[in-house]
């Protein structure tokens, strides 16, 4: 009991030291960013998906580099609209970010009447790029893209091609390929990667478009055959598989998992975040976590990221407007 007053005194002293510190922190707010409070990272989908895993990796390695915690908040619902609106409605101070693919940011506002457009977002850091991959069953007579296109040309509109959800990032490359080649296929929307793969394995459909990661094991086991990827360059996981660009179709629609800030977050803050997140990912631990989860970290810098985003906006806009005004 004797010690109690001494302890109290210590508290008081600590408090007295704290007050000027707090005041200083207030005056030097710009410098303190982003260490003042935890960063909230919204994901537009539920837990366990690729985006969630990417976000959790950042959360696991962020603290020493960002000087604060990164809290991942899953806000599925309304096709990502809930998460997007929550991020945009938050104070534009860079403490509320969103990690997303392009669906909720570009496709959704282009097709629906949303309160925001693609221009309301600026990319901050790209974690990975994923290739929409065209795959066929190994029993397909000629398991190459020209073979598929020839089969589609023989019976216009009768070749079954499956993809994820309607207008998702696995459907748009298929649509773009059709627009360029002027061939028609019979599109079967599914719930996503798992169902797509099942339909292909069971030979219910001939062609499937899905993420390279969801078919990795099946490709390795020889139960499906990849025929093309919709990226600019071939991807390291499938070095034998040509790009659609090589095959003469200008379909470059990579899916990326990118961290976005609302466009009204000040530019210096965005760059600060980009630099700090980049240094968090440039660690042994981040690399090993990513490697375990089969995530290939992309090293795109801040400025080329802006360009990549603009390119995706342009391609997606072109594809969707061609659909709406054929």
């Amino acid at each position: 009991m004797r010690e109690f007053p001494a302890h109290r005194l210590r508290c008081l002293r600590a408090l007295l030291i704290c007050i000027p510190l707090c005041l200083m922190a207030g005056s030097a707010r710009a410098d303190a960013f982003p260490t003042e409070r935890p960063i909230r990272l919204l994901t537009p989908y539920g837990a366990g998906g690729g985006i969630d895993i990417a976000a959790r990796i950042l959360s696991a390695v962020a603290e020493p580099h960002l000087g604060t915690r990164v809290d991942v908040v899953n806000m599925p619902g309304a096709g990502g609209l809930n998460a997007a609106m929550f991020t945009l409605d938050a104070k534009p101070d860079g403490y509320t970010l969103m990690i997303s693919d392009y669906g909720p940011l570009i496709t959704l506002p282009l097709r629906e009447d949303t309160d925001y457009g693609p221009e309301d977002w600026t990319p901050v850091f790209q974690i990975t790029e994923i290739a929409p991959t065209f795959v066929v069953h190994p029993d397909f007579p000629e398991p190459t893209l020209p073979g598929v296109m020839a089969a589609a040309a023989r019976e216009p509109g009768r070749l079954h091609a499956t993809h994820g959800a309607f207008m998702s990032s696995s459907h748009l490359p298929l649509l773009r390929l059709e627009q360029i080649s002027e061939l028609r296929m019979n599109h079967v929307p599914t719930l996503g990667g798992g169902e797509t793969l099942q339909f292909l394995l069971a030979s219910i459909v001939s062609l499937a478009v899905t993420n390279s990661s969801s078919i990795a094991s099946a490709v390795e086991g020889g139960s499906v055959a990849p025929v093309a990827v919709a990226t600019r360059q071939r991807i390291p996981e499938l070095p034998e598989t040509p790009t659609l660009l090589e095959l003469g179709y200008d379909v470059v629609m990579p899916v990326w998992y990118t961290i976005f800030a609302p466009a009204d977050v000040p530019e210096p803050r965005r760059r600060e975040l980009a630099a700090r997140i980049a240094s968090a990912f440039d660690t042994e631990r981040a690399r090993s976590l990513a490697a375990r989860a089969s995530i290939t970290l992309s090293g795109t810098d801040y400025d080329s990221l802006q360009q990549a985003y603009a390119d995706t906006v342009a391609t997606v806009t072109a594809t969707i407007s061609a659909l709406q005004n054929p």
Partner: peptide
């Protein structure tokens, strides 16, 4: 499946 992937094992026949 996600836990397997995080652990570096892709679920599937392989």
């Amino acid at each position: 499946g996600a836990a397997f992937i995080i652990q570096g094992i892709t679920p599937g026949p392989m």
